[in-house]
Design a protein around this nucleic acid. Structure first.
Lengths: 108, 108
DNA sequence: ACTTACAGTAAGTCATGACTAACGCTGCGG
DNA sequence: CCGCAGCGTTAGTCATGACTTACTGTAAGT
């Protein structure tokens, strides 16, 4: 389940800020670190995590390394969320329809 | 930004397991804890986090307390994700169209 | 009214991870 | 060829949070 990595990556506030910074457009490590109160290596580590989660892709451009957002990573999470949403709605509706029935009581 | 709480809540594997357990249908704390290798207070704490994030709602049913999934919480995250997805796609397409232009250079 | 069962809270322990400082590597310029 | 600039990596520190044990509160049954 890749969703675990994606959710774990998006959970950290700093990492989410980095990710949202990349939403405007591609940027190098130094450019991202310039806007954040953390050091450059920290940004590099965050980008590594985002890369392992499949959320960003890096392209070496000479000495610089430019990071882009990978739309596929978001797509997977989106599909998982959609399925979850459908199931939850169905279960919820199913619950409303039988308000005084047996309900849970899964104890055998 | 409520997304922070939602993402932080869904980042933990155990908490995600609790949430997925609730997807099948409503359940009490003891029922959820029976299927997990953690103690009952741990499940209670996880449910508290999920409740603060707006992902679940609890309804006291006598001595038992039954937890349901709150569809609204997922809806918010879904909207945020959709917007993010659109922006990322646009930025990506915009990047492909101008391969040798100024690109980022957000300095100034 | 007393006991039993179920749930939330408090305090404490321990692991995960976010961050910094220092170092090594690569590519471009003089 | 040599120095500089930009990144990544490693080692180490420190804070956050996940988990357990013990306790308190509440609702139902006898």
């Amino acid at each position: 389940m890749t969703n675990a990595a994606v959710l774990a990556a998006l959970a950290d506030p700093t990492r989410r800020t980095v990710f949202e910074r990349l939403r405007r457009g591609p940027a190098s490590v130094g450019e991202v670190a310039a806007d954040l109160p953390v050091s450059r290596p920290a940004v590099s580590q965050h980008l590594k995590v985002l890369k392992l989660a499949g959320l960003v892709i890096d392209r070496p451009n000479g000495a610089r390394r430019v990071y882009y957002i990978d739309p596929d990573g978001l797509g997977e999470l989106r599909r998982w969320l959609d399925q979850f949403w459908d199931d939850a709605l169905e279960a919820f509706k199913n619950e409303v329809e039988m308000p005084k029935k047996v309900r849970g009581r899964r104890k055998s």
